[in-house]
Amino acid sequence: MLEAVNLSKSFYYGLFQRNKNDAVKNVSFKIKKGETLCLLGESGCGKTTAGMMIAGLIKPTSGMVLYRKENIFKYRPKELKKFRTRLQIIFQDPDTVLNPRWIIEKSLSEPLRIHGLANGKESRDRIMELIETVGLSHEHLNRYPFELSGGQLQRIILARALLLKPDFIVADEPTSSLDVSVQAQILTIFKELQKKFQLSCLFITHDLHVARCIADRIAVMYKGTMLEEGNAEDIFSNPVHPYTRGLLDSLIIPDPEAVHPLDSNIPITSDRNYTGCKYKELCDYREQICEEKEPVLKK
């Protein structure tokens, strides 16, 4: 249904754009209908950039995103507008996603107004239906965003994303700014809705618990590249890459003897322009070849 092919994005900065930062490098994956792929990785590993490219909000330096076998960056404006109804993105911080000067109802009806899909009573009915699906009531509609809590806002944003009846959702850490109890609620609603509307999803997160709860398949990213991809159970039961193993070991379980966190003494470098494997500094299995060649992910 949606496919990323060798997606890369480099940012250029500095005097005369001399410095280059490969935020995402050669990332490929496929997502089938109704499936959830979880993009897992630490801060700054390029997972948000990848998500923005999938949503068509950032142009990749090279590579393409295929939606139903069509490259979304080759769309004509009309097709792009149509695509915007098929794919929705949910952002990390619900406090900033709605216009602070608009009441919730106005923000909610906005997608319908932009696409001229429904107005007046029809629009109101559809909003009401969705707002009840996400567990809120009509009294929330006349409030301003700052009058609602983060959890409530994230439900509103879920409702807004579903208003256009999309079949694909890019969720960029939708729960990471919420506290744990609310996270669970939102994830439960998210899963229910996903089943109900047959949604495919690219779920971006750094949280292993969240990934375990929501993912069908998991792709692990590190410093802009994809290290490992596979079924969620396989990744959790039998991680192949040492980084994935380290990540899983760092899951906090109630046994102090069993914890082997990743070595946190090595700083996350923004310099991605060295040769060889990106993980070599942290890796227990380092060999001579790691210094020379960058490994390629094989299917």
Partner: peptide, 12 residues
């Protein structure tokens, strides 16, 4: 800001 980007994503 996110709210402007999100409207772009909706199709505005």
């Amino acid at each position: 800001q996110d709210f402007i980007i999100s409207i772009k994503a909706i199709g505005g």
